[in-house]
C-alpha cells in the first residue's frame, strides 16, 4: 500500500537527478583521468552493487565524508553500479577492515579510512596488514588545532606547554590509542610536559562539548576545525583555537590567520587525519584504476571542493606512488608512537 508513495518519490528524485546532472555536473565529469594507480590499465568497473564500508557509526566523522563522496558519485553517475554506504563500526575500525579483507579480489568493496588504518592495525593483533589492501587514493587532509575553552587564560601554545609542565592536565580526544591521543603523546614527548590524563570520548562532537562545558576538568583538545567550528562560531564564543598543527596558517575561512603551533614553540607541523580510500585486497590493475579515476573525479567536482572548504579540510588528492609514500610515512610515525608508549599488547 505504501510502496507507491516510495516509488513516486524515487521517480521524482530520479527526474531531479537527471536535471541536476545535466545542469551543473559538466566540469567534474569530463576531467581526464590521471595516470596513476594501475598506470595505463583499462578501467574495469565493478559488476555488482558496491558497498562503501564506513568504520564509524552513522553521523561519525568519516561517515559524513563518505556519504558526501557517495552523494557526489551518485549525482555525477560515476559508477555504473549503485554505491551504498554500509556502516561497520567496532573495534576502532577492525570490524570494517576484516569485512573488506574477507572480500579478496572483489571490486565491489571499498572503504573510507582515516588514521585508525594505522593505529588499529598496529595496536591490535589482527590477521592482516595495511599493505594487504588495495590502495586507491587520499582525497583530503583534515588538520588538527589545539583548542582551549574561551575563558582559559592561555593565549598561545607556549602558555599551554608551561602549564602542562607544571601540572598534569586533563585533555580529551576521540577514542583510545588513536590519532588524538597520538598527537597528545607527541606533544608530551616534544615539549617535555608531564604525562597528560587523556580522557577518551566517543566522537569529535562530544570532545568539543566536554571542553566547552568544563566537563570533568578537561582543559584542552585537538579537535579538527569542523568539529570545533560550531562552538567557536556562536555568541558567546565557547571555544578558542590556540594554534594549528599545519606548516602554514589557514589563508581563508573563519580561522584565517590562526598561528601555527611551530611558530609558538610547539614544533609539530606534519600531522593530519587522512581522508583516504582503500579497496579489498587483490584487485586487478584495471579495477584499481577504475576507482582511482572515480575518486579523482569526486575530488575535482565543484560540489566536493565546496564541501572541503566549508569544513576547513586541505584538498590533497594523491594516488599511486605518491599515496603509497604518504601511507608509509604515517605507518612509521604511528609505529614509533606505539612503541614509545607501549601501545602494542
Amino acid at each position: 500500500m505504501r510502496n507507491p508513495v516510495g516509488r513516486s518519490i524515487s521517480l521524482a528524485i530520479a527526474g531531479l537527478l537527471v536535471a541536476t546532472a545535466c545542469g551543473g555536473a559538466g566540469g567534474g565529469a569530463t576531467t581526464a583521468p590521471t595516470a596513476s594507480g594501475g598506470g595505463a590499465a583499462a578501467l574495469v568497473a565493478p559488476t555488482k552493487p558496491v558497498e562503501f564500508v564506513i568504520s564509524t557509526a552513522p553521523g561519525g566523522g568519516s561517515d559524513i565524508y563518505a556519504r558526501k563522496m557517495q552523494a557526489v558519485i551518485d549525482t555525477l553517475k560515476l559508477s555504473p553500479q549503485p554505491v551504498t554506504p554500509v556502516n561497520k563500526d567496532g573495534g576502532s575500525g577492525a570490524v570494517a577492515f576484516q569485512y573488506v579483507y574477507d572480500h579478496k579480489g572483489d571490486a565491489s568493496y571499498i572503504m573510507i579510512t582515516l588514521n585508525s588504518f594505522f593505529t588499529t592495525l598496529i595496536v591490535q593483533k589482527l590477521p592482516f596488514k595495511g599493505t594487504d589492501f588495495t590502495p586507491i587514493a587520499n582525497l583530503a587532509l583534515d588538520p588538527f588545532y589545539l583548542w582551549v575553552n574561551e575563558d582559559s587564560p592561555w593565549k598561545t601554545a607556549q602558555d599551554f606547554i608551561t602549564a602542562a609542565k607544571a601540572d598534569t592536565l586533563v585533555v580529551a580526544g576521540t577514542g583510545s590509542k588513536q590519532e588524538d591521543e597520538a598527537l597528545f603523546r607527541r606533544i608530551q614527548t616534544i615539549a617535555g610536559t608531564k604525562p597528560f590524563s587523556y580522557v577518551p570520548q566517543s566522537g569529535g562532537g562530544t570532545v568539543a562539548a566536554a571542553l566547552a562545558g568544563h566537563q570533568a576538568n578537561v582543559v584542552a583538545t585537538v579537535n579538527n576545525p569542523s568539529e570545533g567550528k560550531s562552538l567557536y562560531g556562536g555568541t558567546p564564543r565557547k571555544l578558542r583555537p590556540l594554534c594549528t598543527f599545519e606548516p602554514a596558517s589557514p589563508a581563508t575561512g573563519p580561522f584565517a590567520g590562526l598561528a601555527t603551533c611551530t611558530s609558538q614553540g610547539l614544533a609539530i607541523s606534519d600531522y593530519y587525519i587522512m581522508r583516504a580510500i582503500m579497496a579489498a585486497p587483490g584487485l586487478s590493475a584495471g579495477q584499481q584504476a577504475f576507482w582511482v579515476d572515480v575518486f579523482k573525479k569526486v575530488s575535482d567536482s565543484a560540489d566536493w571542493k565546496q564541501f572541503v572548504s566549508d569544513n576547513n579540510l586541505n584538498p590533497d588528492f594523491r594516488s599511486g606512488a605518491d599515496f603509497q609514500k604518504m601511507v608509509n610515512d604515517y605507518q612509521k610515525l604511528h609505529e614509533d608512537i606505539a612503541k614509545q608508549f607501549n601501545w602494542v599488547q
Binding site: G59, I64, K229, Q306
Partner: peptide, 15 residues
C-alpha cells in the same frame, strides 16, 4: 547525529 551529518553535507554548520 545522522541528521547533523546531513546538515554538514548540505553545507550548513550546525551550532
Amino acid at each position: 547525529a545522522v541528521i547533523m551529518a546531513g546538515l554538514f553535507i548540505w553545507g550548513l554548520t550546525p551550532g
